[in-house]
Design a protein around this nucleic acid. Structure first.
Lengths: 141, 141
DNA sequence: CTGTGTGCAAACTCTTTGCATAAGT
DNA sequence: ACTTATGCAAAGAGTTTGCACACAG
């Protein structure tokens, strides 16, 4: 008897037409269990294995992409050669902690980009990504 | 007798302490010759080869990273597994044309991000990336 | 000359794929 | 049963590295 989350992982999967297999349910459970999460495929795979969920890295990749396509997850471009995923799919922006490789939501409701021009003729805006890179403050250079 | 660009590629390289070798000069020439450019290592390599500049892909990668470190170039995170570079190093934001894989500067001087919160204690903002993804308008879904 | 840069091919990392086996409905 | 998903290991893309040769100062 949980709170707040009316749809269990299984419901969530059914809604998207994805068969609720062991692995998909287990991964969905990890991902959507509590709060928003930011991670790479390897991080999630390690976590799953650590919790005794038998799943291969290939399946983690497959599943993550299926989740993205189903709108359950979002991909965040941070660095080349490392794909980050985010469980929060609604419009929002991120801090990226350099060196640490961590993504953090910027929890400000009214964060906006001002004076954005129209996209070129015949084009429409798909999405706006704002990434604020931060690093430990240095005394002085 | 050019205009506007007081420092030749060679000057530019000297300023940064990089030896003006054939390849580096040739690449700098391609890159900083005219206007701002957005490209990947492979694109630049192909262009160099196409113009008869003998340079290996490895050297292109080396050179690009050296240029980034020297502040002559900037890296732009767009998609995982493809590193984009940008010859414009000053603060500005981009359109990314999906499907086409093209980056375009957003030429609006007063484009800003409003209501940005303070970074966490002891951290400072390194850089703010804004990427506006655009795609051909679809009739209706 | 002396040290740095270059090119090549091999190595590496992250990610995807092909195919036989296992699981869901 | 029938179909789709999984796991493994191998393949693939992009990027990096090690080392002998070449070039700039």
């Amino acid at each position: 008897m949980r709170e707040k989350v009316p749809d269990s992982p299984i419901e969530r999967l059914r809604m998207t037409g994805l068969r609720p297999t062991r692995q998909r349910v287990a991964l969905a459970d990890l991902l959507f269990g509590r709060g928003d999460r930011h991670f790479t495929a390897e991080m999630l795979h390690a976590e799953a294995i650590g919790r005794g969920i038998p799943v291969s890295l290939a399946t983690v990749y497959n599943t993550l992409h299926q989740f993205v396509e189903a709108g359950l997850l979002r991909e965040v471009a941070v660095e080349s050669s490392r794909t980050y995923f985010d469980t929060k799919t609604s419009s929002h922006f991120h801090f990226f902690i350099e060196g640490e490789g961590t993504l953090v939501d910027i929890d400000v409701p009214d964060l906006t980009v001002e004076n954005l021009p129209e996209p070129p003729e015949g084009m429409e805006i798909t999405r706006i990504d704002v990434l604020v890179r931060i690093a430990p403050k240095r005394e002085r250079l």
